[in-house]
Every structure is written in structure tokens, then in C-alpha cells.
Amino acid sequence: MAKKLGFLVNIERCIGCHACEISCKSFYQLEPNMRRRRVTELPENLVGTPVRAFVSTACNHCDEPACKKACPVGAYTKREDGIVVHDQNMCIGCQMCGKACPYGVPQYNPVKKKMDKCSMCYDRLDEGQLPICVEKCPLEAIQIVDYNEVQPSNAVSVVPTFADPSITHPTTHFILPKPGKQTRRF
């Protein structure tokens, strides 16, 4: 059975530090404004008691990738293991994929004049290593899961700020934080 690899983002552990995003930028030597992985602030009332909560997302390696449908040159492929790969050699920089992706994932590289996106570090995976963001998260809040094998019972497929998953069926899932007890003065 083919794999269905996806990110599992543990918001309960995430401290919103952006180390995932910056380690990715550093490892791939991206241009200063490019963000293959993004950390987004979630509403304070996410779990009831007010908290600072963040979610880290990159390419969602969707089951029905809109980027792949939009691309006129066919630069996108979905591998057997589910990873959506963008071939920069093919890309002509029309930017249509960036428009079509509900998550705005593909970004224009102003120097290469081509689009760029997270590849789930497939070359590292192929060599038995973890993606950089997974390996470098100080809280180990990002995992790679084969969703064909396991559906973590505590995972959800959508959080606020994350576009409707029914459009492209992203593989990314999230573990929501548990509310703690609070004694507040106001």
C-alpha cells in the first residue's frame, strides 16, 4: 500500500518560536523574505482559557494539490509516498500555483524568478533523515506521519486560520492544546 506522508503539528507542544521556519530558511539558504514554513498566531480563545497559541505550517502535501492542477508546465508531481514535489528546473515562474493553493504555499523566489515550496525534505527522507523542521524543532512538535498507517486519534484536520481542507485535502493534521487551569485577576 502506498504511503500517505504528512506533517503532524503538535500545537500543545509548539511554543511559537519559529525555529522550524528559520532553520528551514537557513538550511535551504532561502532569500530573506521567503518562508517555506510559516508559524501563524492562533486566536487567544482557542481552548477557552486565553493563551498564546501558534501553528506551524508548510506545504500540506495535499491529496488533491491545487498547485499541480494550476501549473501549466507540469512542474508538480505527487510522489508515491504522497509528497508533492515542485521541480524548479521546469518552472517558468508564472506564479499560478501560488494563487491556486488555498494555503498560499508556493512562493516566488525573486532571485531565481521561479516558484519555491517545501519539499518535505524528500531527499533527506530518501536518505533516512528527517526533514529539517522536524529535526530542529526545539520542542519536537512536528512529526512526519504515514496517515495510511495511522490516524492519530487526538489529531484534527483543521484549526482557525487554516483554509477549508475539503478543497485540496491536505495531509497536515494538528494536535490541539489542552486548556490548563488559570487563576486570573481580571
Partner: peptide
């Protein structure tokens, strides 16, 4: 190359 994905892509 923009015509390569005519099977799928409306832009193509």
C-alpha cells in the same frame, strides 16, 4: 513549456 500540462491545467 506552458503548453505541457494541457491535460490538467487551464492555464496551459
Amino acid at each position: 513549456r506552458a503548453i505541457l500540462n494541457i491535460g490538467v491545467s487551464w492555464l496551459s
